[in-house]
Design a protein around this nucleic acid. Sequence first.
DNA 1: GCGTCCAGGTCTACC
DNA 2: GGTAGACCTGGACGC
Length: 298
Amino acid sequence: MPAQIFLATPDSFSFRHTVYSHGWSDLAPFELDSEKWRLRYAFADVGSAKPISAVISEAEGGLNIEVAVKRFIEDRLSEKVRHVLRLDDPLEDFYDLTDREERLRWISNLKAGRLIRSPTVFEDLIKTLCTTNCSWALTKNMVRNLVENLGEPATGGGRSFPTAEALASVDEKFYRDEIRAGYRSPYFVEIAGAIASGKIDPESWLTTEMPTDELKKQIKSMKGFGDYAADNLLKLLGRYNGLALDSWLRSQFYKKHNREKVCADKKIEKHYKNFGSWKGLAIWCDMTERWFDEKLMD
DNA sequence: GCGTCCAGGTCTACC
DNA sequence: GGTAGACCTGGACGC
């Protein structure tokens, strides 16, 4: 029989702005019903033998999490939802900075700035690799193929994101033929093997005291991770020093702040320098302002 | 229907 | 340290 878990949220939290903060809610195992504002995800490792599919929706003062069963899993599941929706992220310092510029006051007014992430750093790492040098449609295909081919069926429907062990159990040919990962295939094999064997422990990056520059260097030591991919992953770890410039972000900057003319990355960097260690979040919010207008119109 | 371009880049070789 | 060329895929576009 379906059960419901209530999760209180801070006043500064917006479910819709978090879900639409970037493209992750569009990638499996996330499934977003943007009409009813219900976000489905198949959670693994919540204390049950099989992954559990949960549906998250808005409620008065918090969130409702619908699951097939809640016995034994309630605490673990709530903890994972808190992580995914960044409920414990302190954004006061960021809002202090953005409120100083009138054109950016919408960010704190609308409670934007929480970037949705996956339950594990490992999943964010693999998904980030799937965003490199391809269209968003191809990213979605690759992630869906990973989930459908290597994920576990979940109670309540859907499949979970595969484990590192599952990703390490297949070869380069599988990545090319089934995942359609192309030249990235050997990178998947190498990274999955390193994580499954314990050589790399991405989850430790959430709590490490390591300086960001050093952590970035470690992330970039993985094949397939350059500046963009490393900065993107760092944002999901709560470190916003890097801009994570990709072709989309650059083109948006040229349109909004440079009269549609191409310019050097240094100029973009200079534009956001006043935001210091928050500049990666500042540029992302600035460039997605109209995105929210379009997607969140009721 | 076919060819070309290029997207939420990175790697390697070379200078 | 900076740059050119190669690298997979698949949707969009022009013809």
